[in-house]
Design a protein around this nucleic acid. Structure first.
Length: 878
RNA sequence: GGGCGAUUAACUCAGUGGUAGAGUGCUACCUUCACACGGUAGAAGUCACAGGUUCAAAUCCUGUAUCGCCCACCA
């Protein structure tokens, strides 16, 4: 038979995944149509860093929307999922500069031009790596539309946005205290600084007053910055210091004197209540300095080394070396009063974890508040929806308190700032293209700003610039705004918020309707994954070991909105087993088909056939609902349960007798059910479903574009489901009796079914083949009473009783124990419900249907208890 | 300092007012002709704690504890 030759006993994912992954792309099945009468569904891929390799967080962040887009595609939408990569300035710099460092060089040695060539070469060499990995995962991306944030069109879009914002006054240049990472050699925006609590020290230093024997003691965590102090500040209402206000102080280790000033920002209770003010190396001090027009003495440079102004003894020293020296010298002069342990938050670079240095310099900024206003409104109004919704709160909190965004970076790999400075008149020219001469004084002596833009500045344009903006392309018309953005909570500020602002400002609309925020992937012990801990799970390893389908399904099954997920290989092995289960169930189906044509004759459908139709139909509806709500875990759980425990455990077993008779209608129903299952499962497990589907009679080009099943009320049948449920309970009860009494599986027991109603007799009569097959029963007798002469093992199923008569000898004690245990369990429930029903308050106040259900339940349980007790009595009779 | 989230079976987690669930693991039995990456049956929970609301609370409210995350210019 065809199937036997084709399907192996154990499913092997690798060749299947390779084959279909290539096929889908070669056939252009993921290519979106710019013009289409169909409804569109669009997304853009959060562009992974070009330096990156696929990690498990990506796998999650990309699998979930892929499930959605595949589902929508099958539903007939004109889908676009647009891929691309991000140039990631700092990350690329780190890689290339490390390379250079190994050769004893710096970027300055090679120069900008050569450096950029190295970066591009590097990009060409490794940029494709993550693309291959994305394909392995099965993401249904439209590769014909792939973009890169540094490609020509994108760069044009970036310049366009910069120039417009500048002309509108929303981008400006300022001399300001910003965060600088000495290691990365660039300034950073506020959100690129991570605050970590460090065990530091608080140093109390004596500052002698001029013309006095007294001194003021100030407390600081950074003694080295004292070299740049230009004042000591106290609170205006602090009486302890009122008499020294306006006096001068000798700044130790320098030959400068500084004033004592007052400012409300000083906390009286902290330290000594007097604070040293270093406007050039502390953000608060910077503000105080501005207000009081203090001198700005820069003592630490951008690379973390002490400057000339720090004094001869300190210049050139690293900031932390300098700290030691300063302390030593203060100690020698008797000016170090005391040292306390002190835990405090210190800013670190989010890329390289180096301690950030506040740095006074000329930088470019975006005035964000005006852009934020509309971005807040669209979320408030529900035009953009966060899933889960509580993330909107995080978004609002940041947006309401938003600061201006420093966008210039002292790097080379990136979008160079389109600003030129005239060397003659100091004029600034901001333009799309390089100007020939100064617009003010016509001088040709102009030079371009050395800096590039923050990578996130260009990422912010991703949803519309990828579609060809600022040209008015057909793609923009068709696919913008997009429908869904899937991303991590850690970049809500970095990316999501900025895309919303820029999308509204330049795309003319919101960039996306839904933002799905996925959780963090943790290890099986719920620890964060990190390379240093060695507990990372590499998705590519997992794909190799368990298959991409198993990985995808695992991620979906664990994706509870708003929750981090705890990933274990065990779990993945479980879903590989699931894939194997489907594979073998399909083998079974294919092996039992006779020919390619199946006519399903309604009148020939068995109870089992009609049952699986009804159940599958319910499944379709539930799956659609779960996916609409982005409840991936629920969808995965439901389809898993349906396939394994309804289709395999019950339906396949139930159809066996019918198949043996060569019932073509049942064969048809079986194929129909399997076909439906494969379609439902395809978004989650695209590879295996495609492979099997291609073996089914009547399959078309690809499951990727096969219609997703729609609920069909004609298949829904409550009566059939109820009838089957009763049979299932009967079968399970018989099996339980067998198992608990250690009746050997080979023992084809006889079964008595004791029923009163004619209708029930007919029901069990027409379905006895099912009970016989699934409970391994030899013959069934439908009786009004059990025969007295036989020693029987009895059970209760709803309104009827069953009795098993084994061929072998019984262990009465075992059965007695079983019944006693069962009775005590039922008794507990009975007691609980009786006491509830005794409460008049319950009877008066609870809804009618609840009271009725409770009463019915009590009756059933009492009936069950009674019958079990009878069985026990019969058993103990001589 | 502010905000958010978690606490349910051995483990990882569902479950938002009316009979406590799943997967894995565990126990017993079974290689029967889809599958041992399998089948059948079973054991297993004071739903963190303390109050409150309600006829009824894992679920709603208040508080406590523990853990985690984010934000924040007390040096």
């Amino acid at each position: 038979m065809k199937a036997k030759n084709i399907l192996n006993k154990v499913y092997n994912p690798q060749p299947v995944e390779e084959k279909w992954g290539k096929f889908w792309i070669d056939e252009g099945l993921f290519v979106a149509q710019s013009f289409s009468s169909k409804q569109k569904f669009s997304m853009v891929l959060p562009p992974p860093n070009v330096t990156g390799i696929l990690h498990i967080g990506h796998a999650l962040c990309f699998t979930l929307p892929d499930i959605i887009v595949r589902w929508r595609r099958m539903q007939g939408y004109n889908t676009l999922w647009l891929p691309g990569t991000d140039h990631a300035s700092i990350a690329v710099h780190n890689v290339i500069e490390q390379d250079l460092a190994e050769k004893g060089m710096t970027r300055e040695c090679v120069g900008r031009e050569k450096f950029l060539k190295l970066a591009w070469d590097w990009k060409e060499k490794y940029g494709g790596r993550i693309i291959d990995q994305l394909k392995k995962l099965g993401t249904s991306l439209d590769w014909t539309r792939e973009r890169f944030t540094l490609d020509e069109g994108f760069s044009k879009a970036v310049r366009h946005v910069f120039v417009s914002l500048y002309e509108e006054g929303l981008i400006y240049r300022d001399y300001y205290l910003v965060n600088r990472c000495p290691h990365c050699g660039t300034v950073l925006s506020d959100i690129e600084v991570e605050h970590r609590d460090l065990d530091g020290r608080l140093y109390y230093i004596k500052y002698p007053l001029v013309d006095s024997d007294e001194s003021v003691v100030v407390a600081t965590t950074r003694p080295e910055t004292m070299l740049g102090d230009t004042a000591v500040a106290v609170h205006p209402e602090d009486e302890r210091y009122s008499k020294i206000l306006g006096k001068k102080i000798y700044l130790p280790l320098t030959n400068r004197t500084i004033p004592v000033i007052s400012d409300e920002r000083v906390e009286k209770e902290f330290g000594t209540g007097a604070v040293k003010v270093t406007p050039t190396h502390d953000p608060v001090d910077f503000e105080i300095g501005k207000k009081h027009h203090l001198e700005q003495v820069i003592v630490i440079d951008g690379s973390g080394k002490m400057t000339e102004d720090a004094g001869r003894e300190f210049r050139g020293l690293d900031r932390f070396e300098c700290r030691k020296k300063v302390l030593l010298m203060l100690e020698e002069d008797g000016l170090l009063e005391r040292i306390e342990d002190y835990k405090h938050a210190v800013g670190h670079c989010y890329r390289c974890k180096t301690i950030i240095e506040p740095h006074l310099s000329w930088q470019w900024f975006v005035k964000v508040a005006p852009l934020a206003k509309e971005a807040i409104r669209v979320v408030e109004k529900g035009k953009i929806r966060f899933i889960p919704p509580n993330w909107a709160k995080t978004y609002f909190e940041w947006m309401y308190n938003i600061h201006d965004w420093c966008i210039s970076r002292q790097l080379w790999w990136g979008h160079r700032i389109p600003a030129w400075y005239c060397q003659d008149c100091d004029g600034v020219i901001v333009d799309m293209e390089a100007p020939q001469k100064c617009k003010k004084c016509n001088s040709a002596d102009i030079i371009q700003d050395e800096d590039v833009l923050d990578t996130w500045f260009s990422s912010a344009l991703w949803p519309f610039a990828t579609m060809g903006w600022p040209e008015e392309t057909q793609d923009l018309k068709t696919f913008y705004p997009t429908d869904l953005m899937s991303t991590g909570f850690d970049i809500i500020f970095f990316w999501v918020a900025r895309m919303i602002m820029m999308g509204l400002k330049f795309g003319g609309d919101i960039p996306f309707k839904h933002v799905f925020i996925n959780g963090l992937v943790r290890d099986f012990k719920r620890r964060k994954m990190s390379k240093s801990e060695g507990n990372t799970i590499d998705p590519l390893d997992m794909i190799e070991k368990y298959g991409a389908d198993a990985l995808r399904f695992t991620l979906a099954a664990l994706a509870i909105p708003g929750m981090d997920l705890s990933l274990s290989e065990e779990r993945m092995a479980g879903y590989r087993a699931f894939a194997n289960k489907i594979w073998n169930a399909s083998r079974f189906v294919l092996m039992n088909l006779e020919g390619e044509e199946f006519e399903i004759k309604e009148e020939e459908l068995t109870l089992a056939d009609r049952w699986i139709r009804s159940r599958l139909d319910r499944m379709i509806e539930e799956l659609n609902e779960a996916l609409e709500a982005y409840k991936f875990y629920e969808a995965a759980d439901k389809i898993y349960h349906f396939i394994w425990h309804e289709f395999c455990d019950w339906y396949i077993e139930l159809v066996k007798p019918s198949l043996k008779e060569g019932n073509k209608t049942t064969q048809g129903a079986l194929v129909e059910a399997l076909d439906g299952i494969l379609r439902l499962l395809h978004p989650f497990m695209p590879f295996i479903t495609e492979e099997i589907w291609q073996h089914l009679p009547g399959s078309q080009k690809s499951l990727v574009v096969a219609p997703f099943p729609e609920p069909n009320m004609a298949f829904r049948n409550e009566d059939v489901e109820a009838e089957m449920e009763h049979l299932q309970k009967t079968i399970v009860e018989a099996r339980t009796i067998r198992a608990e009494n250690r009746i050997p599986p080979k023992d084809r027991v006889s079964l008595w079914v004791k029923v009163k109603e004619d209708e029930e007799k007919a029901m069990i009569g027409r379905n006895q083949i099912y009970v016989q097959t699934l409970a391994n029963v030899g013959k069934i007798d439908i009786v009004n009473d059990f025969p007295q002469e036989e020693r029987l093992l009895k059970g209760v199923v709803g309104t009827w009783e069953i009795a098993v008569s084994p061929e072998s000898i019984l262990n009465l004690e075992q059965e007695k124990q079983r019944l006693e245990k069962e009775i005590s369990k039922v008794s507990l429930d009975v007691d609980k419900i009786e006491s509830r029903l005794r409460s008049t308050e319950f009877l008066d106040r609870a809804p009618k249907n609840v009271v009725q259900d409770t009463k019915k339940r009590l009756k059933d349980l009492q009936n069950r208890k009674l019958k079990l007790e009878e069985s026990l009595r019969d058993l103990t009779l001589p």
